[in-house]
Design a protein around this nucleic acid. Sequence first.
DNA 1: CTCGATTGTCTAGCGGTGCTAGGATCGAAA
DNA 2: TTTCGATCCTAGCACCGCTAGACAATCGAG
Lengths: 192, 192
Amino acid sequence: MSVQERKQRERAERERLIVATARELAEQQGWDAVTTRRLAERIEYSQPVLYSHFRGKREIIGAVALEGATEMAVAVRAAASRASSPRERVAALARSYLDFAARNPAVYDALFQLDGGLAFAHEDTPEPLKDAFAALLESLGEVAGDGVHPGLFTEVFWASLHGLATLTRAGRLPPEDIEPRVELLVDRLAVV
Amino acid sequence: MSVQERKQRERAERERLIVATARELAEQQGWDAVTTRRLAERIEYSQPVLYSHFRGKREIIGAVALEGATEMAVAVRAAASRASSPRERVAALARSYLDFAARNPAVYDALFQLDGGLAFAHEDTPEPLKDAFAALLESLGEVAGDGVHPGLFTEVFWASLHGLATLTRAGRLPPEDIEPRVELLVDRLAVV
DNA sequence: CTCGATTGTCTAGCGGTGCTAGGATCGAAA
DNA sequence: TTTCGATCCTAGCACCGCTAGACAATCGAG
């Protein structure tokens, strides 16, 4: 049994290596540079090995996305927990969200821009994604205001953050003025 | 002279054909299906002809984007002009923006998701893009509220719309509840 | 301890991509 | 009619995601 267990362990380790390498390469040179050939070379295995772990490139993107979702949930909760008032909590959440997107552009792309083959807003949505949304909901739900469904409010606030994140990073919005944009968004949207 | 003029005219006509065909193909089957080979076949010329009009595929995407920007500006201005109050103007603008994105997903992608090699938020930004932003600014500027820069307000409102548009279309948000989301956004962000 | 079966990995290759070099063709001017 | 430049196409490059089939290493049964 021990032999099989070791093999399983090594196999799982190699899978982590693939995901970590894909992420690293994507952050360094963009997802376009993450080709199966380059990825295989970096992990020092041949291409077909990738396909023994994942159905294809999109599943690798999906794996990076799930990893990112978990980290984002952690970051957002940590930022929220450091704030004392609901107003400050929402502002801290917004800043940490945009900060995460700016610091991990490739991961953010994997999550929300690229096709990682993940289901969203369904019952079969992977747990990390649901949890990331839950992390937003925890802080945003309390400032939805009377008569506004917390889930709906969270969707709208999240969409606003997502818009700011993507438009800024794509050069569609000037990168300065991030802070006043966050202030405006929080002041207007959140009911405190 | 007449011969040269005819040739120039035909050349311009072919360029329009390329852009229109690319857009059509993208709307029908997505941008992934828009390959230089397929595009060349549809316009009944060989591949290299494309490269005598555009530097490459990204420039073709950029051309579709510019066309889309012009149309979007028209749509947004038309919707805004039909409303009587500032509040209704903003709501109409929001609906027409999201409607445009939903009805022309490929064009919207060319504008804001794909790399069309266009410069944004610079002085050398193409006129249609600046004008589309101006169309938003015209209606949104009047509800920015005291002490808030109209440009900043427009950026934030636009980003929110962009987030709703992309997350909805990518399946990240359930497609129902578009109207209540718009209502919430307008009610909270706009100062009337 | 040997030997077939299973597992794991690799080489080689398929059809596709964006893009381009170089030759053929055609029409206008001499 | 001949020349010559503009125009267009054939063919091909290097790369892509993905996979079939050969090969080697390992395992379990006799």
